[in-house]
Simulated assay, not measured.
Amino acid sequence: MTQLDLFKQAPKDAGQVVAFPVDRRAMMVRATAHQLGTLDYIAGRKFWNAHVKALRTELRAVGIPCRKVDLEIRRYSAAVARTVNPSLLYQGGPDTAA
């Protein structure tokens, strides 16, 4: 078989894009936590709402279903909260596992 033979075969299955979990994007989590820590409450809320809206749009654009996007946003929110307030790390719950 040569490389050109590969182009003659019909594709078996379409590929699937698997997005890296947003709560594991350490640089983005830390940057967001830092930004929130430097803002007052109202500016922080505006920043967070715009940030989550953009993140939600990004996740939907790569084809992630709405329920999965909601779960990713909740986990991301928990990761940012743990970074802003490290004492939350030791509270129980499904989103606190390392």
Rank of each mutant, 00 (worst) to 15 (best):
T2V: 06
Q3G: 15
L4Q: 15
L6V: 09
F7P: 05
A10F: 10
D13G: 02
Q16R: 13
V17H: 11
V17M: 10
A19V: 15
F20A: 09
V22Q: 04
D23Y: 14
R24P: 03
M27T: 14
V29A: 00
V29W: 06
V29P: 00
L36R: 00
G37F: 07
L39Y: 02
Y41C: 08
A43D: 15
A43G: 11
G44T: 05
F47W: 00
N49Y: 04
N49F: 03
H51G: 03
K53Q: 11
K53E: 14
V62R: 06
P65E: 07
P65Q: 05
P65A: 08
P65F: 02
C66M: 14
C66Y: 13
K68N: 09
D70R: 08
L71R: 13
L71M: 12
E72D: 08
I73T: 07
R75M: 09
Y76F: 15
A78F: 07
T83C: 08
V84T: 06
N85H: 12
P86W: 01
S87T: 13
Q91D: 13
G93E: 00
G93H: 03
G93Q: 00
P94K: 02
P94I: 07
D95M: 11
D95W: 07
D95G: 06
T96G: 05
T96H: 15
A97F: 10
A98W: 11
